[in-house]
Design a protein around this nucleic acid. Structure first.
Length: 553
RNA sequence: CGGGACGUAGCUCAGCCUGGUUAGAGCGCUGCGUUUGGGACGCAGAGGCCGACAGUUCGAAUCUGUCCGUCCCGACCA
């Protein structure tokens, strides 16, 4: 197949767009792959759509290979379905009405719709089932950003598995996990499958596929020895040991006028920040106050606290704090506090400085067990310098794009939507479900983030908009045509640059667009009746006979 | 939702602080000519409701207010 640049809508740009920050955003816009319509809303131009479809094709092949069945569900969805599962209140959900006032939503995933269809299943004999579709999703993102990285409307491949029990789900989950690994491999995108937060999907277990990149909404934590990978939100790190002062037999009160920060406290007492504790009171949805306690040099991970508390929490207001502690923020601590104390693991051993629950006073030598009781969990945000929880190796942090996310949902959707089947014993049981999402647009962005140089994109072979970019220079149009024909006959998709433009311009566009190989026909190669070959990734060049094209490259 | 920045030609930007007749540059675009292996050159052109509205003023791209839009940081986030 041959496309001619002279007839394509391929608006390449010389300058970076002013509103772009992420590399993939800049290059996809400059290369004429995508254009923004509004914040988080993008049109895929002809080349961008070709790449998108190549990603889709890979996904389809791998889904079909594990026996997943493709179908197609509507975007517009009656609100009742989402009311039944309790997801109607999600703030990101676009809501609308039809002319008679009936409520609809634009879904951000299709659990409800697919479970609605699964309700038609009747017997365990019909299970397992694995269904998928590729469909538009809408999310009223508070802050779209990074080009294709975070958008308000996008196409997602989402799959749903239906099993009779947990063991079946485990199998379906594993099947999909393996398929995902193959998909990312074929797309040339390096990913890490990590334990992740389940977010608004709910469910028991989930695994996130994170692609390291220059930009992105997630932080990937990995061990230098390769035995640990996690999303920062749930990652564990082992921090350095504190430099403790000599222990005390009992806590000692010390006046700390006007000292409300850890830095000031540590400086005033000449003590290691890591030997202090930080009290962060939170209020549960039922109004009770719990105290989250982390080491002075650490930050609290709200998501971990949320999981530990098992209820909605928010930072307490100053009034609530005074009510519960009898002191101002800045002088709070666990000693004497009547509510629950949830402390980070790092505070288990040693004596720490803590607030005295008396404004402008702190306590030295506070020790858990002796001076207060607490429940110990991991609450801190890992940071640079932490060691691996498995092997003690150095942890590394890098920004990443979440390109896929798979969940064990259990019966979270099948129960409320009445998707039940009869088991072998004739008992009605809710179907055990999993869901598996992947974003082709994000895969494109991640591929560009991972494969580019100062001149443009270097597409992985399976994603490139064309397999070969043939550049026709003046006087060599005929041989360029011939080269394109030969490549096309060999099964290559070819972009033939037949525009009336200067050589430099064509080369610059070819580098920017990033097809794996470039074939140039011009005066130089014409002398011996050949064409010039250039590998986009390596820069390697050679002169070839037209007849040999498409054979070895 | 909190903080910040920006909005002038298709793109990237100057002009605004210190208001003054016809609003500029580079790139891109059209025509003609010369050029032609890494974004050429000359000549001639087209292209703007200066984000919107309201105010101040004899006069507003420029000052004030409100709104809208876009981006960045945070909150949030399949």
């Amino acid at each position: 197949m041959i496309n001619r640049a002279s007839q394509l809508f391929l608006p390449t740009l010389r300058d970076d767009p002013a509103d772009a920050e992420a590399t993939s955003h800049k290059l996809l816009v400059r290369g004429g792959f995508v254009r923004q319509v509004s914040a988080g809303l993008w049109t895929f131009l002809p080349l961008g759509w070709r790449v998108h479809r190549k990603v889709e094709r890979i996904i389809r092949e791998e889904m079909d290979a594990i026996g997943s069945q493709e179908m197609f569900a509507p975007v517009l969805t009656p609100a009742e379905l989402w009311e039944k599962t309790g997801r109607h209140g999600i703030p990101e959900l676009f809501k609308l009405k039809d002319r008679s006032g009936r409520d609809f939503i634009l879904p951000l995933s299709h659990e409800e719709t697919f479970t609605f269809h699964a309700a038609e299943l009747q017997s365990y004999k019909q299970l397992p089932q694995l269904w998928y579709h590729m469909q538009t999703k809408d999310r009223d993102e508070p802050r779209p950003s990074g080009g294709l990285i975070r958008v308000r409307e996008f196409i997602m491949k989402d799959s749903y598995s239906f099993d009779i029990d947990e063991a079946g789900l485990d199998k379906s989950f594993e099947l999909n996990r393996e398929a995902y690994v193959r998909i990312f491999e074929r797309c040339g995108v390096e990913t890490f499958a990590v334990q992740a937060e389940s977010g608004i999907m709910g469910g028991n277990e989930s695994r996130d596929f994170l692609a390291p990149s220059g930009s992105g909404g997630n932080t990937l934590v990995t061990c230098e020895n390769g035995d640990y990978a996690a999303d920062l939100e749930i990652a564990h790190g082992v921090p350095r040991a504190p430099d403790f002062p000599p222990p005390l037999d009992a806590p000692e009160e010390i006046e700390t006028p006007g000292v409300t920060t850890i830095e000031a406290l540590a400086a005033l007492l000449s003590v290691d920040e890591a030997a202090t504790s930080k009290a962060m009171p939170h209020t549960k949805s039922d109004g009770t106050v719990v105290l989250a306690l982390v080491r002075g040099d650490d930050r609290l991970e709200e998501a971990k606290l949320l999981a530990a508390v098992g209820a909605d929490v928010r930072p307490s207001t100053e009034d609530e704090i005074r009510g519960a502690f009898g002191a101002d923020p800045g002088s709070l601590g666990p000693v004497g506090f009547k509510g629950e104390v949830i402390a980070d693991e790092t505070l288990r051993d040693g004596q720490f400085v803590a607030g005295a629950n008396r404004t402008d006073w702190h306590l030295k030598g506070v020790e858990q067990g002796r001076d207060f009781e607490a429940r110990f969990v991991d609450l801190r945000v890992p940071k640079e310098g932490d060691r691996c929880p498995n092997c003690g190796g150095a942890l590394q942090f890098q920004t990443a794009i979440e390109v896929g996310h798979i969940f064990k949902l259990g019966t979270k959707y099948s129960e409320p939507l009445g998707a039940r089947v009869l088991d072998e014993d004739g008992n009605e049981r809710p179907i055990v479900m999993g869901s598996y999402g992947i974003g082709p647009g994000r895969i494109m962005a991640a591929a560009v983030e991972q494969h580019h140089d100062e001149n443009g994109i270097i597409w992985p072979r399976e994603l490139a908009p064309y397999d070969a970019h043939v550049v026709a220079l003046p006087g060599a149009e005929a041989i360029a045509e011939q080269a394109a024909e030969v490549l096309s006959a060999a099964g290559y998709d070819v972009l033939l640059d037949d525009r009336d433009a200067r050589a430099g311009e064509k080369f610059a566009d070819a580098d920017l667009i990033g097809c794996p190989i470039r074939i140039t026909a011009g005066k130089k190669s014409l002398e011996d009746g050949k064409v010039d070959f250039k590998d986009r990734a390596t820069g390697e060049e050679s002169r070839l006979d037209v007849a040999d094209l498409g054979k070895e490259q």
